[in-house]
Amino acid sequence: MPADPPPRAPAITCTGLAKTFPGGREVLLPTDLALAGGRTTALVGPSGCGKSTLLRLIAGLERPSAGTVRIGGLTPAEMRRRAGLALAFQDPSLLPWRTVRGNIRLARRLARLPADPERIEDLIRLVGLEGFGDTRPAALSGGMRQRAAIARAMATDPQLLLLDEPFGAVDELTRRQLARDLPRLWEPRGTTTLLVTHSVVEAVLLADRVLVLSPRPARIVTDIAVPLPRPRDPAITATAAFHALTDRVSAALADGAARAHPPLAAQ
């Protein structure tokens, strides 16, 4: 058993957080960030801008060159030891030799939590993988693997959920389904969620707040609140309010990109 339970719905505070990789490659300029607990924040930015690095810094998988991260007052390492955070990537990163159920069960074991077969069956059902508990990842479609990976991430009831392009590798239709179904897993629990994506629509659909990052080295150029009601149905993407928000995010992205790479001279 972990020593203490993790703080519930923790807020995230980054102070002067910066990352420079060996060789002097600057990825993240010193950043101050305060994210409210229990809310979903999306990090949006062009490919390779350093948004995944920011996520990894918050998870404590990357050591910052400067600055600190606190999650509900704890360091990332303390949070991990209390089984308080979980990750899901674009690549589902399931163990190919374990079944769906085995992969989900393993997360609880690794987090030193008691096995909870009922909870695991619930999760399998909630992510729509009923009947596939004994299937190995190789026999699943991309979307199904992604569902399994999200179920694994939820298996430890994390207070902080870190999602790195979780729907990046699946087709558009599956992506919409996942964006509709999966937030229902973490929204009612008051999980603090941080989502990295390069999809403007996904960011606005899922998040309460969208942070737009500049091209590398990353800094936060715009902070946009998303005051849309919850729970959100994908039909919301057809509304004017939704479009106004996506336009603002897109404009901020284009603006950041234009400052980093001035347009080519007309030929």
């Binding site: 998988l61 390492a77 030891r81 990163s93 997360a107 690794l110 987090a111 694994r152």
Partner: peptide, 26 residues
């Protein structure tokens, strides 16, 4: 051993032995 799977293990503060048994040996 796939880096992201090791990251998942690290996110649960799993020690060297589980990493060896579940990820590195296979």
């Amino acid at each position: 051993a796939p880096g992201q799977i090791l990251d998942v293990f690290e996110s649960y503060a799993a020690g060297p032995l589980p990493r060896l048994l579940h990820v590195r040996l296979p």
